[in-house]
């Protein structure tokens, strides 16, 4: 059932690219095929051609919207890539606070781009609560965006399975969550620190004045040209000397000017430089 030929798969890939700008390179085609199969099964369609017709229908955009939600959703969890989170908490954040205090500026703005169901921005919020003394005198804004309304709704709900919180230090779990019906619900103090928004990174409108941008394991779904454009826009959205965290294996060398790679304890971050 649901045998998708290579020709059909390439058609799906082009349709997704046209509709949201995400590009599944040849090495990711099997992931794409699996996600399409899952969605076809859910929607009760077994013939790939019939499903192609369904998502191309100009009268009903719901299915293409649902498929995009499905193919762009990545499973994530709290405290993902621990060394990066520790560097953020123990190195970058104290450094940033020192700089802000010296400038008599109490505003910190962080963007979690491609935030999925909220695990990353809530992790950042928890790190801030743990690191910044008297955080209430600071104006801390964590802006979190994603292209899928499905994950955004989940994120704003703040309700997680045990799997999502497995890597979170136990003391944080007790401090910032309550357990209900087998799920872990994030508390309101953390929840209030994050503002979720629907945004596609290929759009032209980006918010600005961010001290730090996290965009981890997202750019892998874009073509090099789009990637370059997105990183250039990140450059414009960051304050001078602002930081960009990418996925642990993602590099931007050779793609754009204006970032210096800084090695932290067990991870790297890209710092904005003048052009």
């Amino acid at each position: 059932m649901n045998n998708i030929s290579e020709k059909q798969l390439l058609k799906f890939r082009d349709l997704i690219f046209t509709n949201c700008g995400l590009w599944f390179g040849d090495s990711k085609l099997s992931i794409l095929a699996n996600r399409i199969r899952t969605r076809m099964k859910e929607s009760g369609v077994s013939d790939p051609d019939e499903y192609l017709r369904l998502i191309c229908s100009p009268d009903d955009r719901a299915e293409i919207s649902t498929l995009i939600n499905q193919v762009t959703t990545n499973e994530t969890y709290f405290y993902r890539s621990e060394s990066q989170i520790d560097s953020f908490k123990n190195i970058i954040l104290p450094k940033l606070m020192e700089k802000k205090v010296a400038a008599n500026d109490r505003r910190i703005r962080i963007w979690s781009a491609g935030c999925s169901s909220g695990e990353e921005p809530y992790t950042l919020a928890i790190c801030i609560l743990e690191t910044i003394p008297f955080h209430s005198i600071w104006n801390i804004e964590i802006y979190a965006t994603d292209i899928s309304t499905e994950v955004l709704n989940k994120a704003s709900e703040g309700r997680y399975s045990r799997r999502a919180i497995e890597k979170l230090p136990k003391e944080y779990l007790a401090k910032y969550f309550v357990e209900r019906d087998g799920f872990h619900i994030i508390n309101n103090t953390v929840k209030k620190m994050v503002e979720f928004d629907y945004a596609n990174l290929i759009d032209a409108y980006y918010e600005s004045d961010f001290d730090i941008i996290f965009c981890r394991n997202v750019l892998i779904y874009f073509k090099d040209e789009t990637k370059k454009d997105i990183i250039n826009k990140f450059w414009g959205s960051l304050v001078d000397d602002g930081y960009l965290f990418l996925g642990p294996t993602e590099m931007i060398r050779g793609l754009v000017e204006g970032f210096k790679m800084v090695t932290l304890k067990d991870s790297v971050v890209f710092q904005k430089q003048p052009r």
């Binding site: 955009r61 719901a62 649902t66 309304t149 709704n153």
Partner: peptide
């Protein structure tokens, strides 16, 4: 809008 899923509407 053409975004017609329940999650789109809720958002």
């Amino acid at each position: 809008t053409a975004k017609s899923t329940e999650t789109d509407r809720v958002w």
